[in-house]
Amino acid sequence: MERREMIYHAQCSCGTVRIEAEGEPVVQCYCHCNTCRGRTGSPINAPVLWPRSKVRFAAGEDKLRRYSDKGHPDGGLFSCGVCNGLVGIDLGEAGLFDIFAGLLSDLKFTPTVHINYENTVLPVKDGLPKLKDMPAEWGGSGELLAE
């Protein structure tokens, strides 16, 4: 019998755009960068990253708006053309797709690291590693900061 990967589901606030992500995410983390704060209006973002090949738009793809910004010039940010809700970020050269944890209805969010902690405006004491910027394998310094 063929083993099927778990499918996780996310959607915009009005439900027009629906996303499916297959299998377990590459990482679940907290991001403290200025770009995420500007997009979400929150002091901390909660990205869940999958390989781009494991993410698909299950509905509403014709209603998507895609745009690039300085943070992701080779990828794109996707929002719903009906409710304007940000639904995901294609992380271009990394080959990853970011779905905010709060949009995932059936994933138990279990972060393992904080990234871009040098920019934090809300210090968090949770025992997780705090990276100054990004992991070395993602092109960052990999430098850890004190909690």
Rank of each mutant, 00 (worst) to 15 (best):
G23A: 10
P111R: 10
R39Q: 11
P47E: 02
S13L: 15
D98W: 06
R39P: 00
K132M: 09
E143V: 10
G76W: 03
V82K: 13
R52G: 01
D106W: 14
W138K: 02
G15N: 11
P135F: 08
L91H: 03
L107K: 15
S42C: 13
L103Q: 14
G142E: 13
R37A: 02
A59I: 12
R37T: 08
Y30G: 01
H9D: 10
R37I: 01
I7M: 12
L103E: 03
C33E: 05
D133K: 07
M134K: 04
F100H: 01
G142T: 15
R18W: 02
L122K: 15
R39Y: 12
S68M: 13
L77T: 06
N34E: 15
R66P: 00
A58E: 13
C29H: 10
C83G: 07
H9V: 10
G41H: 11
R18E: 13
C36Y: 05
S68P: 00
W138C: 02
L144N: 04
G142C: 12
S79P: 01
K132T: 07
I19W: 00
R39F: 11
N116E: 09
Y30K: 08
V87Q: 03
G142R: 13
C80R: 08
D74E: 14
N116Q: 09
F97T: 09
N34V: 11
H114P: 01
L96F: 10
L103F: 12
G81K: 03
E20R: 12
E93V: 13
K132D: 06
C83E: 06
E5S: 06
L128F: 06
R52I: 14
L104S: 01
C14P: 09
T110M: 05
E118F: 06
P123E: 07
G85Q: 12
N84Y: 14
A59R: 14
G71P: 07
D62H: 14
G140V: 14
E118C: 05
Y30H: 14
F97W: 15
E5V: 04
H72M: 11
V121C: 13
R37M: 12
G76I: 03
E137A: 09
V113D: 06
K63R: 15
V48S: 05
S68W: 04
